[in-house]
């Protein structure tokens, strides 16, 4: 579906802009989460077929003709795991941020010059 594809691109670019322009570490992590969601929407909309059902072949779907009735299962499977991995990596990033805050009591990346190159 072209609409959701465009929505995914917009979210991805908003997230990227937030990651590049913000100074606050928490806001950078939020930007990552937004970009992550955008990528999920892009992948799912690439596998969407108009007017078809979810790929669960129970009594509601004609099983003999299932190939013509369901959407592509592969993008759904990829996104399913990507969401959980995204949650875990976001948690790890937040812990890094908390650890940095303990050192200098600041979330601004300007205060961490030793990370600059």
């Amino acid at each position: 579906m072209i609409e959701t594809l465009i929505l995914g691109f917009i979210l991805l670019l908003i997230g990227l802009y937030a990651m590049l322009s913000q100074k606050n570490i928490i806001k950078i992590i939020l930007g990552f989460s937004i970009a992550d969601t955008g990528v999920h929407i892009i992948i799912v909309s690439l596998g969407y077929l108009k007017g078809r059902r979810a790929p669960i072949l129970d009594s509601a779907v004609d099983i003999a003709n299932s190939v013509k009735e369901v959407v592509d299962p592969i993008p759904s499977a990829l996104v399913l795991t990507a969401i959980v991995i995204g949650l875990a990596t976001t948690a790890l990033m937040l812990v890094f941020a908390a650890e940095l805050h303990k050192r200098k009591a600041s979330f601004s990346i300007d205060d961490y010059k030793e990370l600059k190159w």
């Binding site: 108009k50 669960i56 190939v67």
Partner: peptide, 29 residues
């Protein structure tokens, strides 16, 4: 907009019913 499943996805949908007997194709994948 795609109108048909790719050959790989078709194989997964058929295999999920015939080889694995699992209604949820996403789980099979």
């Amino acid at each position: 907009s795609p109108t048909n499943l790719s050959a790989l996805a078709e194989e997964y949908v058929r295999g999920s019913v015939n080889d694995l007997k699992s209604p949820n194709v996403v789980t099979s994948v």
